[in-house]
Each structure stands twice: as C-alpha cells, then as structure tokens.
Design a protein around this nucleic acid. Sequence first.
DNA 1: CACCAGGCAAGTA
DNA 2: TACTTGCATGGT
Length: 219
Amino acid sequence: MGKSATQLISIYKRLWAHFGPRHWWPADTPFEVVVGAILTQNTAWTNVERAIANLKKDRVLTPKKLYSLRPSRLASLIKPAGYYNVKTRRLKEFLHLVMEKYDGSLKGLFKKETLSLREELLGVKGIGPETADSIMLYAAGKPIFVVDTYTRRIFSRHRLVGPDISYGDLQAFFMKNLPRRPKLFNEYHALIVETGKRFCKKKPLCDMCPLKEKGIKIS
DNA sequence: CACCAGGCAAGTA
DNA sequence: TACTTGCATGGT
C-alpha cells in the first residue's frame, strides 16, 4: 500500500469517527438527485432545498412533468436556487436526452457502462465533470469518485495535492488509492462536503477541524 | 456594505 | 491553451 493510500484511509477514518454516516445524497429518488446536482452548481444547498420543495409542492418532480413545463414556469419554481434561467436550460437539456433516447426513464440511461454513461452525461450542455460524477455515484450507483471545491481545498491545504490540480488528476488520485467501492466513495465525498461546509470555507476554521492534528499551515 | 456557496460554458487573446 | 466573465439567490 502506497503512502497516499494510507493517508487517504487515515483521513477517511478520522472524518467518519467524527461525523458518522452521512446517508447521502439527501434526496428521495434518483431523479431528485439529478435535479439537485444541477441546481447546486456554485450554489448553497439551502437555496437548492427551497427550489426542490417548490417542485415537490407542485408535484412536478418527475422527468415527464418537468419536461412538459413551460421554461418560464420552471424558472419561477427553481428561482431560489439562483441562476434560474441557466439552470432551466440545463434541466431541459438533460430531460431532452432522457425523453428522446430513453423513453423518459432514468433506468434505461443508468444501465449503461460507467465510461459510456459518463461520456453521455458530459455531452449534455450544462453537465460538467462534477455534476456528471454526482449523478453517476449518487443516482446511478456507479463507482466514481466525486470531486468538488471542498475536495481540492481540504486536500491541498493538507498538502496531499497541489492547489491547482485538475479535476481529472484529483479524481484519479482518489480512485487509484482507494478500493473501488461505491459505498466508500459515497461516504467519503459526503464527509468531505461536511468538513468543507463546517470548517474549510474560504476563511477556514482549522482549530475546529477534525483533521487539525494532521493539518498543516494554511494561508 | 462585501463576500461566499457542493459549476459550467462561452468569450477573448 | 490559458485566462476571464456571466449567471443570481439567500445567508453571514
């Protein structure tokens, strides 16, 4: 076992001991995961919750219902999540794929092999690497590690990687050094986000962080 | 008031 | 290729 692998496991254990299981993704259905993944792009989750609540209240949180909504109506429902015009287009782009190619069923889409599913998701305008990987791991259950702002921030501050590491390289760092188990990837990313939200914001609270003993200098 | 949040695409040089 | 900018609400 390499040094990086040992460190990654050690950090995971420490976070899990501190926070316990996260039960991610916070959603009732795979489709809700997809919608949440798009709505949370560069946006606080509390705002996404309001938007999702609006969709549930009007009982339109299914692919067919959302696809049939007028864009102006969808935009007004998701308004609390911000970027509502952009995100309306992005949801519609994804729904168009599901409706036209998979008969409105996520099941069909998620039957694809991991790599071809990733390519297909990345082909949708508005779905980038993090959104695609969140959908794959948390909606489709594929063994893909999700990288986000917090991941880069936490692991570069602890000097396991450089601060400007690319998405792909950071993802590979985790996937090469951890057993490829969806359950582990699920829990690890969820723990990273919890740590990020609480302690590793742009203005860090490193004294409080469960990783402080391994911790290093921060700017 | 300023700054930030679980990105992404499009524009510029 | 490598920056830069627009998108927008709600919390601190």
